[in-house]
Nucleic acid binder design. Structure first.
Lengths: 141, 141
DNA sequence: CTTGATGCAAAGTGTTTGCAACTTA
DNA sequence: TAAGTTGCAAACACTTTGCATCAAG
């Protein structure tokens, strides 16, 4: 299932329209890769269509999030980050506080311990966020 | 080491002054307990000293954070939360997306796996944040 | 009495919204 | 052509800052 198909299906189901702006923004979101902010996405989208506005980017981001095509991340800055959710397994992040580098990692054992902890608390986890802040190997300590 | 002593030492070392406002705000921050926002702390502090301003609360929060008396938390809302760091072991959080309830938990095994993962990535972790979002037992699913 | 601290209001950030004009289905 | 969508600018919510006045050391 491609992101484009997912999005058109999503829009159809909600009786929303596929506009050229939405197509452009989705395309750019899939192209940029990694973790990006609303503003970065706006800049990229403007390269393809100069008239696209900030408001439309935010509105589209919110749809893409709802459609589970993008995932919103919060790295403790004041802005939100987005990354592809489709074709991208769940993972967590290291964040270098010096250079801002973000490293992804997957660790099933941690997830299993989380589930176990959730059972103990009778809590039904929907999603989680694990971030390890510190210094990447380049930035030493 | 009491929070008060920690704070006066911290201020002295930085040649900053202990004002009545700072004393009030620290006192309230220690009294309120749990997780609170800047605005809540302002409201509480105003009960003790009506003239305290928002600006002073924010400025004092930043000092308390630097002095490691408070810890800043980010629960994905747009505002920041604070909680006592002194006399309070490290822990992580469940956050109920329905009622907003926050449950703390400690799990040493998860921490050990995190350290292990960090070693693999040659990343030096300074602090981490693990949040499990979902439904608490009251809010079911 | 010197230097830092305060309160106020204004400025900043990132994000959201009201509205008239415009597009999609 | 009806309903959703857009760009714009203004509105928002939270936080920070400039400045004249005030108080701690």
């Amino acid at each position: 299932m491609t992101p484009e198909k997912l999005f058109t299906d999503f829009l159809e189901k909600k009786e929303l329209k596929l506009t050229s702006q939405r197509r452009t923004i989705l395309g750019q979101a899939m192209t940029v890769g990694g973790h990006f902010t609303a503003d970065e996405l706006l800049k990229h989208s403007k390269k393809e269509d100069r008239t696209i506005s900030k408001a439309t980017v935010y509105r589209t981001l919110s749809l893409l999030k709802e459609a589970k095509i993008l995932e919103e991340q919060d790295f403790g800055n004041d802005r939100k980050y987005y990354e592809r959710a489709v074709g991208h397994r769940h993972h967590d992040h290291f964040i270098c506080v010096r250079c801002g580098k973000i490293i992804e990692f997957e660790n099933g054992a941690i997830e299993r311990l989380q589930d176990h902890e959730a059972k103990k608390q009778r809590f039904k986890v929907v999603y989680h966020s694990l971030k390890l802040f510190g210094f990447c190997n380049k930035c030493g300590s």
